[in-house]
Amino acid sequence: MNLTIGSLLDFTGLGLGFLFTILIFSYLLGDNPFFRLAIHIFIGVSAAYVALVTINNVLIPRLIIPLINGTKGERLLSLLLFIPSLFLLTKATPLRKAGNWSVAILVGIGAAAAVGGAITGTLFPQILGTINSVDPSAYAISTSRWDQAINGFIIVLGTVTTLIYFHFGARETPGQSSERLPIIENISKIGKVFLAVTFGALYAGVYLSSLAALVERLTFIWKFLNSLGFTLFSSF
């Protein structure tokens, strides 16, 4: 009996997967009610799933369990956490101004973590990586040093010119519209080419991923139809 319920659930699941795939693929014919239906179900299910994961992985182990089973200190700390959390919940009610100070804690911590993370996680490692690409003592022995030097120079050129491309400071001239310095303007053109190369490589990467997803979905549709008895390709 269990096996029957199990297979029925499996089949229902596959059927739902097939149905939603077709509903999403209908977007290729243009925006239509079937696509919108699938998207609204998707948003609802995803929002609920995210809420469940948040409750199960963060709120219960870090707030509820210490409050019920924790030591005296843990209970006190959890209680201290509970107060701003409750005030933050008022943001979903008409008393939303009461939660401003809770948001202030969140924003303060978030901003500091972002600044610290950007300095220690991106700024220093990327600058070090760029310096190392033109540092002969950091070169690999297996490849030609000239190759590495030229590649290193191109990497530095790409990094610097791309940064300059995003420099929008301009000198003010009375009676004329502000323009960037000619040298900045010219260097930023090289930066634009490097940006095109980077975006092209990223685009190709995303395209390959989406192509893999397309192949997976088409294979799923084929297999599902074959399981229903629609033999599309006998060799498949």
Partner: peptide, 29 residues
């Protein structure tokens, strides 16, 4: 392409994002 020019451009982008994040964060702080 991926190892050299795209890396250079990506580093420039990442550094720009990091600098922007630091500026925004400091403005909040």
């Amino acid at each position: 392409i991926v190892r050299v020019p795209a890396l250079g451009g990506a580093r420039g982008l990442l550094l720009g994002i990091a600098l922007g994040t630091i500026t925004t964060g400091i403005r909040i702080l």
